Amino acid sequence: MPVLRIPRLAALACAACLILAGCGPDERDTQRPPAPAGVTARAGTATSAHVMWDQADGRAGVTGYDVYLGSKKVKAVPGEKHMTDIDGLTPSAAYTFTVRARDAAGNVSPRSAAVPVTMPAPAVDDRVAPTRPTRLVGRADGARAATLAWTGSADDVGVTSYDIYQGGVRIHSVSGNATTARITGLRPDTVYTFTVRARDAGDNSSPSAGAVDVTTAPAKGSGTSTAPADFRAVSVMEAGRRYIELSWVPPRTDEVVEEYEMFLDSRPTTTIRWGAAPPAGRATYRFDAGDRREASYRVKIRARLPDGNWGAFSAQRAVVVDDGGR
């Protein structure tokens, strides 16, 4: 029987091709993300709707979302967003929206549950804004959500929606009949400041309700806290002057923390920043304690996180200013 001899280099090349051909398709990511949950659609004006959904868990690998009006894709949204406005709609018409998630490998989730919305009739020369919402209150729902409630606004034609703002940015909308909203996708152990505005079909917005601060709970387990750790406050004497020296370990975040807010006797008193780059390790800050001897102070700080929100407070320390330092 004749023997077919293959040169060694050619044989190795063939083997490599077989390995690549065999492994490539099997190793490709074919796992579809889950369908987005919590999809809502609210009329913002007579011609625009606000569509929102729950942001996917970070482990799902979602890099974007596609919003569908009926069977037609009308908007693509990056993965860090979980809401969008759809414009150009017809007053008094009924629509149905769905959302699909996409991952980096191009896998697309099943469609979300379909949500209907009926647009209001166009307002006739409506130039009067709704009144300001009042009695805004908020509470944390665990580590990653919050619930807001307020007293509704009045309008000469009718309120079509309430817009929730956080840090000056609209993050959510509910219908004009609602006076509560649940905000999800928040960060544990973080202070969020919310306010609410009413909007009518003429796209007139009310003044903002009084702001409310909500602090989310720390994450369970070994989650990283946003509070400065190992916070210390001591009295020191230098060149005949008395100072209070603070020191702490910065919270661990994705980026360097550049700003802190100091509270003295429960009142915000100063913002702490560095002229150059903030210290990489333990941070210190010293301020003049004044001329009052044996004065007692309570001090605590909190960090402004890279996303612009305030983190949780450090432990509060009591310090007595004396001449000898301690």
Results as ranks from 00 to 15, higher is better:
Ala11Trp: 10
Ala15Asp: 07
Ala21Asn: 12
Ala21Asp: 15
Cys23Gly: 14
Gly24Ile: 07
Gly24Pro: 02
Gly38Ala: 13
Ala41His: 00
Ala41Glu: 02
Ala43Gln: 03
Ser48Thr: 14
Ala49Cys: 05
His50Asp: 08
Val51Gln: 03
Met52Glu: 15
Trp53Ile: 03
Gly58Asp: 14
Gly61Val: 00
Val62Asp: 01
Val62Ser: 01
Thr63Leu: 06
Gly70Pro: 00
Lys73Met: 10
Val74Ala: 00
Ala76Glu: 07
Val77Asn: 06
Val77Trp: 08
Pro78Asp: 11
Pro78Ser: 08
Pro78Val: 04
Pro78Glu: 03
His82Asn: 09
Met83His: 05
Ile86Val: 10
Ile86Tyr: 04
Pro91Gln: 03
Pro91Trp: 03
Phe97Tyr: 08
Phe97Gly: 12
Arg100Lys: 11
Gly106Phe: 01
Asn107Met: 02
Asn107Ile: 02
Val108Glu: 07
Val108His: 00
Pro110Ile: 01
Ala114Trp: 13
Val115Thr: 09
Pro116Arg: 15
Pro120Asp: 09
Asp126Pro: 09
Val128Phe: 03
Thr131Met: 05
Gly142Arg: 03
Arg144Leu: 15
Ala146Glu: 01
Trp150Pro: 00
Trp150Met: 01
Gly152Cys: 09
Gly152Arg: 01
Val157His: 05
Gly158Thr: 05
Ser161Tyr: 06
Ser161Gly: 07
Ser161Leu: 12
Tyr162Cys: 10
Asp163Ala: 06
Tyr165Met: 08
Ala178Tyr: 08
Arg182Thr: 15
Gly185Trp: 05
Pro188Asn: 02
Pro188Glu: 11
Thr190Asn: 10
Val191Tyr: 05
Tyr192Ile: 10
Phe194Ala: 08
Thr195Phe: 02
Val196Ile: 07
Arg197Phe: 00
Ala201Lys: 14
Asn204Asp: 06
Val212Gln: 09
Val214Phe: 10
Ala217Trp: 05
Pro218Ile: 06
Ala219His: 01
Gly223Trp: 10
Ser225Gly: 05
Thr226Asp: 10
Ala229Asn: 08
Ala229Gly: 13
Asp230Met: 15
Phe231Asn: 05
Arg232Trp: 14
Ala233Glu: 05
Ala233Asp: 12
Ser235Gly: 01
Gly240Cys: 04
Gly240Leu: 05
Arg241Pro: 08
Ile244Tyr: 04
Ser247Pro: 03
Pro250Phe: 06
Arg252Thr: 15
Asp254Trp: 13
Glu255Val: 09
Val256Pro: 05
Glu258Gly: 11
Tyr260Met: 05
Thr269Cys: 02
Thr269Ile: 02
Arg273Cys: 00
Gly275Leu: 11
Pro278Tyr: 03
Pro278Glu: 03
Gly281Thr: 13
Arg282Pro: 02
Arg286Val: 07
Asp288Tyr: 14
Gly290Phe: 12
Arg292Ser: 13
Arg293Leu: 11
Glu294Ser: 15
Ser296Arg: 04
Ser296Ala: 14
Tyr297Lys: 12
Arg298Met: 04
Arg298Glu: 08
Val299Glu: 07
Lys300Cys: 04
Ile301Cys: 14
Ala303Ile: 08
Arg304Trp: 08
Arg304Ile: 15
Leu305His: 00
Leu305Ser: 00
Asn309Lys: 07
Asn309Pro: 01
Ala315Ser: 13
Gly324Asp: 05
